[in-house]
């Protein structure tokens, strides 16, 4: 039972939401785009969207400047 986060394999935890996963991964930066199996999960759904076993997750960090 595992998931892949930014190409790293990590344990799958039952009923884990996106924001809890980000905390577990120590991804403390607040400005991220999250895709689960290629589908966007918007910031408004970070606390309600639960990760399924085997999911492939991209966490894309955006830094200010332009």
């Amino acid at each position: 039972m595992s998931i892949v986060v930014n190409k790293r394999s990590v344990d799958f935890i039952i009923d884990e939401s996106v924001d809890r996963l980000l905390k577990r991964m120590n991804y403390t930066f607040p400005m991220v785009i999250v895709k689960v199996d290629g589908t966007l999960v918007t910031r408004s759904r970070f606390s309600s969207h639960l990760i399924k076993d085997g999911s492939n997750i991209d966490v894309i960090h955006l830094t200010s400047g332009g």
Partner: peptide, 28 residues
């Protein structure tokens, strides 16, 4: 410029204009 605006914009383009390529930058 602002990271929060970047995230909102990218989210809205990916959701609202599916299939449209978007080219973004971070860490300039």
């Amino acid at each position: 410029d602002d990271a929060s605006t970047k995230v909102s914009f990218i989210e809205e383009v990916l959701l609202g204009l599916p299939g449209k390529p978007i080219v973004a930058a971070s860490g300039v």
